[in-house]
Amino acid sequence: MSLIAVVDYGMGNLRSVDKALEHVARDGQEVRITSSADEILAADRVVFPGQGAARDCMRELESRKLIEPVMQAAKEKPFLGICMGLQVLLAHSEENDGVDCMGLYPGNVRFFGKVLNQDDPAEPLKIPHMGWNNVNQTIDHPLWQGITDGSRFYFVHSYYVDPEERSIIAGETTYGIGFTSAIACDNVFAVQFHPEKSATDGLKLLENFTHWDGK
């Protein structure tokens, strides 16, 4: 039995992620929502979702003693970050007057409002960035396999990642400005959008993850 652990740290509803993974998992794969460090470390693959504010996410991860095991998993096995599960991988977030995050990748998480309010006042862009937007695949990657470049995925967020290392960018999206909507580095793939809510293309990405060996 191969285990896909979905990290539960009390931030947001994991049922959709769980059900979508179960929908695409192969025979012999088990999907388990867990907040156990041991289970995360023992799993074959780790999915790191998340919703809500950066400060609350970091606080919950700390209080559950999950920072170490999640960092460890991100160093050694196929790892998929979703939404806040992408943002907290960076060093710092502007949310909540500034929050230090996990720091796996140098860079900042920035607020859309600062750039979008300068837009054409005739049609200002709304925040949160909510709905289906195009993701331009900036690299070839096993998780993009079978997904047409530029396909639309479902987003809902007010902050976006701005990694220092441009080489880890795997996907870009435009909303007022161009921003990083996916990153890839070794065994880690992380996305700002919600594959579990992105119909066929989202399920395809999750299915690709269930096959991915992290290379």
């Binding site: 049922r15 959709s16 579990e196 809510k197 992105s198 119909a199």
Partner: peptide, 29 residues
Amino acid sequence: AEEVFIPLTVGGGIRKIEDVRTMLNAGAD
């Protein structure tokens, strides 16, 4: 929510924080 993988909204009779939580836990976005 087990079979349809697009965002779901639920309204009608939402009066307490428990109602909100129950719906989100059931799979509403």
